[in-house]
């Protein structure tokens, strides 16, 4: 049995469990709500998959989401730009933030954990500084809110964005030469360098992409909530990283899959939603997530050990 299939089975069991103990859990409406609540973290998790595959990490995505949300608010309301231009500016802000990470990681060779620990404070801090912590942007136009609150048929609108991103990342990681390069870098950066791969450029591009996704996630977030404030996305980096690791991507790099990340994300999202519908306290989600993470690591290790023999 592969790890992903095991995880899929877990997810099925989890859904079965909550369908039996939760109120109205197994309904189309609730499925939509689960997607809505997890779309932003999903985007971040998808973007983090190639980052972690290269053996890196990006702790700054939640803070960058907050900064991009503030950029959206500032450019739209304070500067009076049209909402589409403001949205583009928010995504550009994400790319710039990701670019700073890329520069420090790929050009200067500073370990990504440290770089993104610094930018984690920096991005959130700039968002707080610009708004003095206080300013809260709301009353966005309906057409924009549709992105986070509307439905296309029965499908929540953010699902479209999430699916598009999933396909894109799947192509990058699993179907393009670049994906193999990323894995090679994660497996052995020096080896990849000696093999003539453009390690720096590839590394830089995954952080850029991660920043861009934080920008897009900020749009979904603001549209879902109807407000943009400096505290948007607090703690999202941990949820996203948890989803990626639960999905079987190795934190040491070299191994990982986009499908696994989606399964990991679904497992977490269903857990949080299911516990609420089963009248169980939210703290349990944290405790169970911790147990799941450890179990996932253990299972991965056993499976790997077996495949080596």
């Amino acid at each position: 049995m592969t790890y992903e299939r095991g995880l899929a089975l877990c997810l099925v069991l989890e859904i079965a469990l909550f369908a039996s103990i939760g109120w109205n859990f197994f309904t189309a409406g609730n499925a939509g709500e689960i997607v809505r609540a997890s779309a932003e973290i999903g985007l971040l998790a998808l973007a983090l998959t190639p980052v972690i595959v290269t053996g890196g990490i990006d702790l700054s995505v939640g803070s960058l989401l907050g900064l991009c949300a503030v950029v959206l608010g500032v450019t739209w309301r304070d500067a009076g730009w049209p909402i589409t231009v403001a949205a583009a500016a928010a995504v550009v802000a994400g790319v710039v933030g990701g670019g700073l990470n890329a520069l420090l990681v790929a050009r200067l060779g500073i370990p990504p954990l440290i770089v993104t620990l610094g930018t984690y404070s920096l991005f959130r801090g700039v968002a707080e500084g610009v708004t003095a912590g206080v300013r809260n942007y709301s009353d966005f136009p309906e057409s924009f809110l549709f992105l986070g609150q509307g439905r296309i048929g029965v499908v929540p609108s953010q699902l479209v964005v999430l699916v598009a991103a999933a396909i894109g990342f799947w192509l990058i990681v699993h179907r393009m030469a670049v994906g193999r390069m990323l894995r090679a870098i994660g497996f052995s950066p020096d080896g990849a360098r000696y093999a003539g791969l453009p390690v720096g450029r590839r590394l830089g591009s995954v952080y850029l992409l991660s920043g861009m996704c934080a920008g897009v996630a900020a749009l979904l977030y603001v549209a879902r909530l109807g407000q943009a404030k400096a505290d948007a996305g607090t703690g999202f980096e941990l949820m996203a990283i948890t989803a990626v690791i639960l999905g079987g991507t190795s934190i040491f790099g070299g191994r990982g899959s986009v499908g696994g990340t989606l399964l990991g994300l679904a497992t977490l999202a269903v857990l949080q939603n299911g516990l609420r519908l089963a009248d169980l306290p939210a703290e349990l989600a944290g405790v169970v997530t911790a147990a799941l993470l450890l179990a996932a690591l253990g299972a991965n290790r056993v499976l790997q050990g077996r495949s080596r023999k």
Partner: peptide
């Protein structure tokens, strides 16, 4: 409200 940003800058500049 600029403290957090400045602390981030200090970390980044140091490394």
């Amino acid at each position: 409200y600029w403290d957090r940003a400045l602390q981030g800058v200090i970390i980044l500049v140091a490394v």
